[in-house]
Simulated assay, not measured.
Amino acid sequence: MDQVKDKAKRVANSKSTVLIQGESGTGKELLARAIHNYSDRKNKPFIAINCAAIPDTLLESELFGYEEGAFTGARRGGKLGKFQLANEGTIFLDEIGEMPIHLQTKLLRVLQEKSIEKIGGHKSIPIDVRVIAATNKNLESMVENEEFREDLFYRLNVIPIFIPPLRERKGDVKILLEYFLKVYNAKLSKNIYGFSTEVESVLLNYNWKGNVRELQNVVEYAVNMENSIYIRMDSIPLKIKKLTEEASKDFQITTIRNMERKLIENSLKFYGKSVADKKMAAQALGISIATLYRKMKEYNIQLD
């Protein structure tokens, strides 16, 4: 994450497009806002639009606006699109992989010509906008499957930034737990000091498929449920407790003697019963043939 932040700082004042990739919940919009706030455009608009949340029929008018009378129901006086609203600032195109092909073509033209044309309009309107796009999809695979325009991909992917999932950032989990605990203590008027040792261990080792967003939700839930000064197991979501219990059942501790006996038995079953076979088994186990015979006698291992 230090490398991600350093890269973001270095490109903040560039006019080049940035493509932020990462799983859902890793904080792609947060990083986009950080890039904007660190840039010389920080006092200008930051306009975010989720390409997956708006119907295809409305997305074009949301992005580029429309002139009065452009279609039935069009607002009197027309409407400014997100690109015009973001002029001299930054536009953040979230879930860019969900943008329909016909709009990808229009977006490519906007990026190339630095101008937009409203629906129903007949003139080009110049714009000065920094474009940051984000997706949780593999755009390269989508290009290969002809689901995303190759030329648009290369236009967006000038500065690629990948945010790693939380399961690969175990060191961040504890920091985030403490941060969100402070946030929800203040928001919910609680005074919880921290997490019990058991809860902390469980949460530090949890897989976090929903990444930071899931962690935030878990802490908010736990703070709501907890009545003592420490978050206890009873206050964390049932799903996490069940997964922890299942993992505990799968992991069974056995003695070193039992493990050693099992290893020897399995080796002899694999190689065979002859003297030559036993020599190969001993070699595979990293012990001498004499030690193998002694262990067989000690554990009363008999070959059928």
Rank of each mutant, 00 (worst) to 15 (best):
Arg10Cys: 00
Asn13His: 00
Ser14Glu: 02
Val18Lys: 15
Ser24Pro: 11
Gly27Leu: 13
Gly27Asp: 08
Glu29Lys: 15
Ile35Asn: 06
His36Ser: 07
Asn37Gln: 15
Ala53Glu: 09
Ala53His: 11
Leu58Ile: 13
Ser61Val: 14
Phe64Pro: 04
Thr72Arg: 03
Arg75Thr: 14
Gly81Val: 10
Glu88Lys: 15
Thr90Val: 08
Phe92Trp: 09
Phe92Gly: 02
Leu93Ser: 04
Glu98Gly: 09
Glu98Met: 03
Met99Thr: 11
Leu108Asp: 05
Val110Gln: 04
Glu113Asp: 13
Glu117Lys: 09
Lys123Pro: 01
Ser124Val: 03
Ile127Tyr: 02
Ile127His: 02
Lys137Cys: 12
Glu140Ser: 13
Met142Val: 09
Phe148Arg: 10
Phe148Tyr: 11
Leu152Pro: 08
Asn157Pro: 00
Ile159Asn: 09
Pro164Trp: 04
Arg167Ile: 02
Arg169Asp: 00
Gly171Gln: 05
Val173Leu: 03
Tyr179Lys: 12
Thr197Arg: 14
Val199Arg: 08
Ser201Trp: 07
Met225Phe: 14
Met233Ser: 03
Ile236Gln: 05
Thr244Gly: 07
Thr244Asp: 14
Thr244Tyr: 15
Glu245Pro: 11
Glu246Arg: 13
Asp250Gly: 13
Asp250Arg: 15
Gln252Trp: 03
Ile253Gln: 13
Lys262Ile: 10
Ser267Lys: 03
Phe270His: 07
Lys278Phe: 01
Met280Phe: 07
Ala281Ser: 04
Ala282His: 03
Ala282Pro: 00
Ala282Thr: 01
Leu285Ala: 06
Ile289Thr: 14
Ala290Pro: 07
